[in-house]
Amino acid sequence: MPPGEPRPDGEHGAPLFELPPELAIDTDVARRVTVDFIRNQLRQAGFTKGLLGLSGGIDSALVAYLAAEAVGPENLLCVMMPYRTSSPESEDHARLVVDRLGCRSDLVDISPIVDGYFGHDGQAGSGGEGALEAGSLRRGNFMARARMCTLYDRSVVWGGLVVGTGNKTESLIGYTTLFGDSACAFNPIGDLYKSQVRQVAVAVGVPEEIIRKAPSADLWPGQTDELEGGFTYPQLDRMLFWMIDKRRSDEELLAMGFAEAAVARVKRLVAVSEFKRQVPPVAKLGPRTTGVDYLYPRRRPGSAKR
């Protein structure tokens, strides 16, 4: 998107989303790099196909468009994995993406997996009596991991790699489930803030209704990211951009007009979620330890499986 046009308009002239000017990116470059990245990651690993969990939200919709561009829709499998309380609109939107792209899709209802553990209708599951009382955090995390298990199982049948769909904003504040929605072989959009995901989504032609709707993890009815977090994405993206990318101190952030409590809260969210963004640490004992002083590229000649 060229500078000076920070608010891409929808079909009827209304802004599709609010875009802070400092987060405006050249979407041609972003598209080129992310598409090449997907193609390269697959090729280096010896694969031609990819798959991803398609939720009906903007992040996975965008990655589906990018992956279809990278390897062709015939080499992309989109897996829809609703739980019985998931919004029907999510599934409609996921189907819309699949129809537009002409890619392969699978529908896997994760309700029996999740209910089998937590129990259902007063009947205890394999998680025991106590699991019947599990709150939304436990259930949400379990659902994210059930989807991860499903995707990785499907990846064997499909013969492709799992493409990640998490964005930079949620990664930085830790709004992800470790080994759940964040699990993937590689992630093409993990360095794009939500506001930047939206720009690229417009550029590649993700359907307007998906771009326009309120972002939600859809782990329980009525949940939206912004209600849960207490921030709007433009506010959060701006703060993270200045705090992290542009290394502004607390004092500088306050002088820019960010609220003190909000800065403190976001800093805490970033700090407490550091562990989610890193490979688990290994106790150093031997002369060469992976990730410490045994440092190789993930892929080199001979490392592809096929």
């Binding site: 405006a24 990116i25 050249d26």
Partner: peptide
């Protein structure tokens, strides 16, 4: 390595 993706730059990077 290409980085610092922003619309303000002449060639995007």
């Amino acid at each position: 390595p290409g980085r610092d993706l922003a619309a303000v730059h002449e060639v995007g990077l």
